[in-house]
Computed example of a mutant assay.
Amino acid sequence: MRATPRQAARATAHLVLAAAMAFGAYIYITVLLITATGALAVAGIWLVPETVLLTRRIAGAKRRLTGSWTGQDVPEAYQPITGTLRERLRVSVKDPGTLTDLRWLFAYFGYGWLTVLVLPLWPAALLVDGLWAGLLRRTPVVLPLITGLADLEARWSAALLRPSPKALLTGRVERLTATRADAVAAHGAELRRIERDLHDGTQAHLVALSMRIGLARRAYQGDPEAARKLLSDAQDQAEDALLELRHVVRGIHPPILTDRGLVGAARALAASSGLRVAVQAEGLDGGPRPPAAVEAAAYFVVAESLTNAAKYSGSGQAEVRLGRTRSGLGVRIRDEGRGGADESAGTGLLGMRRRVAALDGTMRVTSPVGGPTVVEVDLPCVW
C-alpha cells in the first residue's frame, strides 16, 4: 500500500514523540545510577521500589504510544507494590514485569537513538522528495521510508514491552484470586439477603397465618361468623406469604428468565421500570441460549441499571442493548440523565461489578456530570 502524506505526517508525529522519549530515557540513566548506588550503600535501598514504579509509568507511556500507532493495545502485567519496605522490595525485584521494563529500557537506549539522529534530516529529505515527485513525476521515496521506520520502531517496542508468559500467568492468577474473593463476598451477601427476606417477610406472614387458623379453630363452635372472618384473614395472609416467597425466589433466579429468556425478561423489566426503554437484541432470537448463570448476571445488570436510572438519572428514557460478542454476551444500558454515577456512593454498581467479575466478565461505567450514563458489560461464555 502506498504511503500518503497524511500517513507520513502521522508517522512523523509518532517518531518525534519516540525521539523525545529516547532523549528522556538517556536522562533517566542518572536515576538508575543513583538508585543502584543507594542500593549498594544500603541506606538508599528505599529508592528501589520508587524507581521501579517510575519505570512502570515510563513503560506505560511507551505502551500507549505504541498502541496508538499500531491500533493494538500492548498489555502489561505487574504485581502491586504495596506493604512494608521489605514487601515492596521483594515484589520490585521478583516481579517479571520489572525485568521486562528494564530490558526494553536498555534496548531503547540503542534503537531509540536512531530516531533522534534521523529526525533532523527529514526536512531536507522531504523537500527533495517533493521535487522528485512533483517535477519529475516519480513515486515519492521518503514517505514510505518514514512510515516504515515508524512501523519498525513500534514493532520493536511492542515485542520488548509485551509481558512474558510467566507474568501474564501471575497476573491472571491474581485476578482470579480477587474475583473469587469478590464472588464469595457477593454470595455471602446474597445468602444474608435471602435469610433476612425469609425471616422478616415470609416467616412473619406464616406465623400470623398459623395464629389466625388457631383462633378460627377455637371460635368455630361458639362463633362461626368470627371463625369465617379469621379464615378470610388467614387466606389473605397466605397470599401475602406466597408473594414474599416469590420475591425471594425471583432474587435467586428469576422464573421469567426460564419462561421467556433474557430478551423477554429484559423487555418485561423495561415495561415495569417507569421509563421509556428501547430494548434491542442482536443475534439472540432463536439458537442456543447463554448459560443460566450468564443470563442471570445479565438480567441483574439490566434490572439494577434501570432501577438506578429511574431513581437518580432524572431522565424519562433509557436504552438496553443485548447481543452476541466474540467472547460471549454483551450488555449495554444507557440513560440520558444527569450522570455523575459514583460506585463508592452505594452498593448497586459494586454489586453489579462483583456479579460480573464472578463470571470473569468485564464492566465499564461511563457517567460524566451532565450525562449520559452508560454501563457496558461483557460476559464470556460458550454458545
Rank of each mutant, 00 (worst) to 15 (best):
R137T: 12
A227L: 01
R193G: 13
I252Q: 00
R364Y: 12
G330P: 00
D101K: 08
Q280F: 00
V93K: 04
K62A: 15
G251A: 09
V382C: 15
R276D: 14
T66Y: 01
I45E: 02
L230D: 07
V42Q: 13
G83K: 07
S210T: 15
G346I: 04
L206Q: 07
I27H: 15
A11P: 05
V248T: 15
P224H: 00
S367N: 07
V16I: 14
A238H: 05
V277C: 07
L269C: 09
Y28W: 08
T202Q: 01
S68I: 06
I45H: 00
A150F: 07
I81E: 10
A298C: 09
P380H: 09
Y299G: 11
T30E: 08
V16M: 06
I45G: 11
L131F: 02
A22Q: 05
E174K: 07
Y26S: 14
D285N: 10
A296E: 04
A41L: 09
L152Q: 04
R355Q: 06
G314Q: 03
L349N: 03
V249D: 15
A234H: 07
A216K: 03
Q317T: 13
A296N: 03
G361N: 05
W383Q: 05
R172I: 02
T307Q: 07
L143E: 03
G38Q: 08
P291V: 12
G330H: 01
G361E: 06
T179E: 15
V320Y: 04
T115I: 14
G351A: 06
R260L: 07
V356Y: 02
P254Y: 04
F106Y: 11
L99V: 15
W113D: 11
R332W: 04
A270G: 14
T373W: 02
T307A: 09
R6N: 11
R63A: 14
P288S: 08
A22M: 03
T37S: 09
G283D: 03
A20D: 10
L230W: 04
G370P: 03
D182P: 10
